[in-house]
Amino acid sequence: MAELVRTNDPGLISVIEGLLGGAGIAYQVTDRNMSVIEGSISAIPIRILVPDEQEAEARELLTDADLGNWLRV
């Protein structure tokens, strides 16, 4: 699995989930529960992962949606 994005912004996470789901790209959101448990200090960011074989397609999709600045290197 390749990490695409790491953030605590619920709006951004929702948009990315919609884009990936709409494009048929499998994804996994990790650490969502841990982020909620730790409260609002943002110590544990939520990560969005995609299968390695769909990483390039997912990165292109987010870049085309002007979200490329959120992509992990």
Rank of each mutant, 00 (worst) to 15 (best):
V15W: 07
I13Y: 00
R47A: 09
T7I: 00
W70D: 11
G39E: 05
D9P: 03
L20E: 05
A2F: 08
R6N: 01
L20F: 05
I41Q: 10
S42K: 14
M34Y: 09
L49F: 14
R72L: 14
E55I: 05
E57T: 15
L12K: 07
A56P: 03
I16W: 08
N33P: 00
G21E: 09
G39I: 01
E60V: 04
S35E: 02
I41E: 08
L12V: 12
Q28A: 06
V5D: 02
S14I: 01
M34T: 04
D64M: 09
R59L: 01
L12A: 12
N33E: 15
P45C: 07
R47V: 07
S35C: 08
L61P: 12
R47F: 06
G21W: 00
E17D: 03
L71H: 06
L71Y: 11
S40E: 13
L20A: 05
M1E: 13
I13V: 11
G24D: 04
V73Q: 14
D64Y: 02
M34Q: 12
I48W: 07
I48M: 01
E38M: 10
L62E: 07
R72C: 13
L4R: 09
Q28W: 01
T30V: 13
G22L: 04
E17M: 14
V50Y: 09
S14A: 13
L20K: 01
V36A: 15
A65V: 07
E53I: 12
I16A: 01
G39Q: 03
E38P: 00
R6C: 04
S35M: 08
L19A: 04
G22W: 02
D31R: 15
R6P: 00
I41G: 05
D52W: 12
G39F: 02
A65H: 11
G22F: 02
L4A: 00
V50L: 04
S35I: 00
Q54V: 00
N33K: 12
D52G: 05
Y27Q: 07
I13W: 03
